[in-house]
Design a protein around this nucleic acid. Structure first.
Lengths: 256, 256
DNA sequence: GAGTGGTCTAGACCACGAC
DNA sequence: TCGTGGTCTAGACCACTCG
């Protein structure tokens, strides 16, 4: 039953124990020296197996302490228009409402607010030229004390210049709520694009990601009733912590 | 400027060269022995740096040949109801239509069709008891010759027993097209959940994934006009090859 | 202080690819 | 055949955690 390579054999054994629950989330793996003895090999080979599992996201290692089976809260990110509408009417940030309803403690930190030249892709989505000034609001969201989202929201100055969106403080109901209430606009549609990749070193450190955890990057554009894009929200979230849900309504067949 | 550890230093240097284009996609990295000489260290340490970059998805290694900067086609997966409707009316599979329009060569292979006991989550979504028999159609989709999707579609026997859905051959327009045309049903809504994780060894080999590439798993439930779930489609795709797009319509505020 | 993971060296053999 | 990446051994030192 031995695999071709000792390090694979060790990794396969441990992975199996994790998947079938013999090694539960949070459990400590046997020490590297112990595994080396058990498999009659050297610590170097054991370490290679451990590194493989870490790369697959199964375990995290703590120097001086041990390697542990990882566990993550499962967050469900539901993106439907009616939910957004009803939560926005509740007066608090839709995102917070989302997760507090799911029983998680949410803390939002506004990192910075200011005008910056728009990145090329953002400018295009907002109908501006690259480098045009936009209002940027950056924040980090902590859930249960762990960083769970890095968000950068971009707003055209033509619409939001001089409003609360340009000020460095929280806005009750969010900027889009303010857009609907104070600016008499109406949000009619979001278009969201989601892509997946491994984090850059900076992202990994800001999200406190152990190695081997991919991130999801979403770019959400908000359109008002006239089809104008009024917000571009770029989010980076740990890929293994979220499930995204989308509802897609299908129109009836064309009449013959 | 040297980093704390030689292997980090080497990895950082190479990553930077990849990101700024000095090492273009497809380019071969210097050999391990060459890097060992250049950085005045051993091949073991160089290999650790290489392994790190491979784990981050930047490079792929070919035994006997070298390590190369990875490049992937960018596929856009657009999931909107109106697109589905118009493509389905075109008579061919919406998925194929999607990507052929984007200029990619699509080949679908039907792997198996048969009745199986429903997995717990699928049974729940179809309103069945776990273990009830369902029709399962498994397929693999190749784009440009590379495996780009593993799909398992589940159908309740109460609706699809005895129809073409239970037969081991392609259905023009897809099973849902058949549902609308031959069975007089109407698809009114999809609900899709997307999650991200590292692949299992089996998935990695079926999708020919180099290590370090995460996968996206989507579970899409199709509902008919009466709110019955008629299909559960579970897809596994290479995470780095796709961008997913969703449109979220927002209802107007409730009248006061 | 004992044990743990993190890193590195030095050298060996194997499997595969290109020439 | 020769260079490439893939694996393994044996042993060393460091940094950190915990009792």
């Amino acid at each position: 039953m031995a695999a071709l390579h000792p390090f694979r054999r060790i990794a396969d054994d441990l992975r199996e124990e994790i998947l079938d629950g013999r090694l539960a989330p949070g459990a400590r793996l046997p020490s590297e020296n112990e595994l080396a003895v058990r498999y009659a090999t050297t610590r170097t080979t054991v370490r290679k197996a451990i590194a493989l599992l870490r790369g697959e996201g199964y375990i995290a290692s703590a120097q001086g302490s041990g390697s542990y089976v990882r566990s993550r809260p499962a967050l469900l990110m539901i993106s439907t228009g009616s939910q957004w509408r009803s939560r926005r009417d509740g007066g608090i940030s839709p995102l917070s409402a989302e997760f507090t309803e799911q029983g998680h403690e949410v803390e939002q930190r506004l990192l910075s607010v200011g005008e910056e030249p728009a990145p090329r892709d953002v400018a295009e989505l907002l109908g501006l030229a690259a480098g045009d000034a936009v209002i940027v609001r950056r924040r980090r969201v902590l859930i249960g004390g762990s960083p769970m989202q890095l968000g950068s929201a971009y707003y055209p100055t033509a619409i939001f210049g001089g409003t609360a969106a340009a000020e460095s403080r929280r806005i009750k109901g969010g900027v889009l709520g303010m857009f609907e209430d104070a600016l008499a606009g109406r949000i009619a549609r979001f278009v969201e694009r989601l892509s997946i990749r491994m984090p850059t070193p900076v992202e990994a450190s800001e999200l406190q990601l152990p190695s081997g955890v991919p991130i999801a990057r979403t770019v959400r554009v908000a359109y008002d009733a006239r089809g104008r894009s009024v917000e571009v929200l770029v989010s980076i979230v740990p890929g293994d912590a979220y499930t995204f849900e989308y509802v897609i309504d299908v129109p009836p067949p064309a009449a013959d």
